[in-house]
Nucleic acid binder design. Structure first.
Lengths: 186, 186
DNA sequence: TCCTTAAAGCAGCGATCAGTGCGTTAGGAC
DNA sequence: GTCCTAACGCACTGATCGCTGCTTTAAGGA
């Protein structure tokens, strides 16, 4: 008891179990409705004992938050072309492609249904990416845009269609959205 | 067996049970995470036998779809001021108010998590209302706007903020969104 | 290499859920 | 008022979930 420093073990078996569990959860969500996603079910698919899940995550909601966080972090490379308009168009295209995957949507829906902050974990990294691009534009002396406002104009329609409608995104939609935001100039 | 016409009984006890179950489901969603929403739990709160729920709805997902459909239908009066801009601004304000209720959000999240078409049932009536307003504008010789496009610009930001962020809507946001859509002219 | 101790596995326990067969109640047509 | 039957209530049964002591394994520092 030299101090209260508890040493964590992020590597080796723990990491392997974590990866297996994450993969198993996403596989199950892709196959069946989120209703049947229980900790024993995920454990069985992952080849891990259910006790491990109860001890590490505690509940389906926390597990889903963890899965969503790692799934939606670092999955998209932030473009840096030197032009905000170009950056945004490429980025919106990438996000649109990401949202076109049914399995991704299933995970997102489950995370939203799991709790009030489930949706936030899905877009936290998106907002960070947006802030990076807008910050660079501001640094190079361009227009100063608010992250919230740009998120409203770009992510709003994208995620709204993905979750609330069955309307597929049309080609050229990214260009159209960015155009509506930045206008003809810029 | 004169014919295969099965007579339904929408009134009396059935309707009472249905209303009680709907109310119970929304109450439970307002109190606890959707994870704990089971058919026996709803039945207990509603003062109804669980068997009834298993027979009439079959699963939590179907029950949630039913609840969401009736909850988000006919709850907002479509304005008819003679001006599209005025109609849209009032309507967006009403929708924003509706989305500010935590209990409403809890139901919406649960419906989304229940299945792929859970989100659609929450906004089907909204699109119908939008179509009505745009149809009137077109009939009186005004601008002809596409429902999908207007939904992108108005409902997109609204529902995105409600589900994916914790950013509260600012005052005057309705005016701002409609302005961004219709421009300075009208 | 050895040692400490996170972290995973094992066995087993209430509690509750999903589902079924059958009797009972009451809506609605006649 | 009478009758039919849709819809609800009751009693009951596996199956499984959530959880907890205890043991075993292996990560990571000395």
């Amino acid at each position: 008891m030299s101090s209260t420093t508890t040493t964590f073990r992020p590597g080796g078996r723990s990491a392997r179990v974590r990866a297996d569990v994450h993969r198993a959860a996403q596989e199950l969500l892709a196959e069946q409705p989120a209703e049947g996603l229980t900790l024993p079910a995920v454990a069985g698919r992952a080849g891990v004992h259910p006790t491990t899940l109860y001890r590490r995550w505690g509940s389906v909601a926390e597990l889903l938050n963890d899965v969503a966080t790692s799934r939606f972090s670092g999955d998209i490379v932030v473009p840096d072309t030197g032009s905000l308009r170009e950056d945004l168009e490429r980025w919106v295209t990438d996000v649109t492609t990401d949202l076109a995957d049914p399995d991704t949507l299933a995970l997102m829906r489950a995370a939203i249904g799991a709790g009030p902050d489930g949706g936030c974990t899905c877009v936290t990294d998106r907002h960070a990416q947006l802030a990076a691009m807008l910050g660079r534009e501001r640094a190079r002396g361009g227009v100063a845009l608010d992250v919230e406002r740009v998120a409203d104009a770009l992510l709003g329609p994208l995620y709204y269609r993905a979750i609330f409608t069955t309307t597929p995104p049309e080609p050229g939609w990214a260009h159209e959205l960015v155009h509506a935001l930045l206008g003809r100039t810029a």
